[in-house]
Write a protein that binds this DNA or RNA. Structure first.
Lengths: 180, 180
DNA sequence: AGAATCATGTAAGGGGTTACATGATTCG
DNA sequence: CGAATCATGTAACCCCTTACATGATTCT
């Protein structure tokens, strides 16, 4: 249970089976996920292999003329389950914001409905917990060590920026769908 | 020229030669660098090996009774140079703040004098450049794609949080030294 | 004719993590 | 006597990146 960013790829396969090359085309669109998650083609193929080994994907080979036969990937039931809980689960560490949370948000948003809200709410709760922990550790200005104060202020600033951004994202991503 | 966090270790060797075990003791002090940079002992030994291969460190073995002989590391002139420019150089990407910049700050601060100020100034300039770039890319609210807006706002929020924190750190780390 | 597209991969290497190895000495 | 300290490392594994391989087809 270590690496799980790759579960995101399942989000591309919810509706139709697709093959790797096709997935890479969509992944590379500069208006989409590419803004936050970039990889080489070979890396995508490696991730698909892993997802298949883990039982989240299954494929059938479809020969077409002379080219290497396409591997048409489809989600397994266990894949659907893993994806559904992945996309709703908040990230725990601050460093996972930049990549994992933005990826989750991409798929949560395109799925529409309550998913975005669930994710943003859960993430906000997680951030508030984190903020409380930081305050309890309480390296306030009484602390004699300047470096400790600076480190603490860095973290506090990060959490606060995340909370602010979560608020603004709720406005951006949930209202327009209702009013459209 | 890829990995350079390890140059930080040179900062421990400015005054006296030290051996690996000793360095690990200081690195592990919970009030110091340990707050932001943690590693296993074996990792430290690996980094020291690398620094030696790169010519930044030299060592002499000092046998003492039965134990494995200490490798007393000292900086080479090239090491001194590399360290001096490392500690003053700002980080370019946002993700290097959490680790690299906080480490730089740790050493810049303990060295006292103008080094902290130089680092903070250079980093502020780099952040302002980055902020300007983001504004030029200008994904403002006219942009029709909600996801692009959200990604942009995330980045803008990050830069702003960093700029605010750099300001507060200047107060924390430069004034107290003058008034002491 | 040469480049880009289609569609899959393998190989090599860099970097980190975890676990394990060694063997005397000092502490409780 | 057993645990922690002192002081060095090696080995295995995981993940990602870069580069290269293949071979037909379609675009310019």
């Amino acid at each position: 249970m270590h690496r799980q960013t790759e579960l995101a790829l399942l989000g591309f396969l919810k509706k139709n089976p697709r093959h790797g090359y096709d997935l890479y085309q969509e992944l590379s669109e500069p208006e989409g996920l590419w803004q936050v998650w970039r990889m080489k083609q070979s890396q995508l193929y490696a991730l698909l292999n892993r997802l298949e080994e883990q039982g989240y994907l299954a494929f059938s080979r479809e020969a077409e003329g002379s080219r290497p036969p396409r591997k048409m990937y489809r989600m397994t039931p266990s894949g659907r389950e893993a994806y559904a809980s992945w996309v709703r689960a908040p990230v725990e560490r601050g460093r996972q914001f930049r990549l994992d949370l933005l990826i989750k948000l991409f798929f949560a948003h395109r799925e529409g409905g309550a998913v975005v809200t669930e994710l943003l709410d859960a993430q906000q709760a997680a951030c508030l917990d984190w903020q409380r922990e930081l305050e309890e550790k309480g390296v306030s200005r009484e602390d004699a060590e300047p470096y400790r104060r600076v480190v603490h202020q860095y973290r506090a600033g990060q959490v606060q920026a995340m909370l602010d951004w979560l608020d603004s994202s709720r406005n951006e991503l949930t209202r327009p769908i209702v009013n459209g």
